[in-house]
């Protein structure tokens, strides 16, 4: 035995802070994935705030991010879009209740063009900022060649003068929940003469 044996040097302690590096990188990547779409969309240009005249009697103010995507006739209407969510607004002559207009829209427009079509069981009452009342119902179904199911919410308003207005907010399934607040706000603020 010799007392002069040199002690074996211990290995350097692990760099504890290095355990944070991959975690921080991973966290940053996840933040980028989750928020990147919104940031990119903003960078591509924010639309909205414009007043969209749907017909001579109906005007909708688009919220930020929403823009006029299309106009159509028979009945006269317009489509506002934000991402994969859309709000179709149409006005037509109609005498009857909002529930009646809702039923007519579902039977004549939605159901014929849909597969596996389902409606919510209850019709909800709606009051616009202008004081006009309407009826609202939710639906889901497959439309046309689009493979993803579409979720939607239809609101019908009928004025005492015999003007019926349909608001159909829709998006691919799972996406509507992120746009529904905007859609309801635009409907609530809609100006119906």
């Amino acid at each position: 035995m010799s007392a002069s044996v040199e002690p074996v040097p211990l290995p350097a302690p692990p760099l504890r802070q290095r355990r944070w590096v991959p975690v921080l990188v991973l966290a940053a990547l996840m933040v980028g994935i989750v928020s990147g779409g919104y940031l990119t969309s903003d960078a591509l240009g924010q639309a909205g705030g414009e007043r969209v005249v749907v017909s001579s009697s109906v005007t909708v103010t688009a919220l930020p991010g929403w823009e006029l995507a299309d106009r159509f006739r028979g009945p006269t209407g317009a489509r506002l879009s934000k991402g994969s969510a859309s709000l179709d607004v149409a006005s037509l002559a109609f005498t009857g209740s909002p529930e009646g207009l809702l039923a007519a829209y579902v039977e004549n427009i939605l159901e014929p063009g849909a597969e596996q079509f389902r409606l919510s069981e209850t019709v909800e009452g709606v009051v616009l900022d202008s004081g006009q009342v309407g009826a609202r119902i939710a639906y889901v179904g497959l439309f046309g060649d689009v493979q993803a199911p579409i979720e939607g919410e239809v609101t019908a308003v009928v004025t005492p003068d015999g003007l019926g207005v349909i608001f159909d907010g829709w998006a691919p399934s799972g996406q509507l929940q992120f746009a529904i607040d905007d859609i309801r706000t635009m409907i609530r603020r809609a100006e119906i003469a």
Binding site: G36, G37, Y38, S41, G83, S84
Partner: peptide, 19 residues
Amino acid sequence: LAGIANAGWGLVVARIGGA
């Protein structure tokens, strides 16, 4: 997280490709 992120990137697809 995917629900939130899908909606965000959906905006990008729609802005580039249309509704």
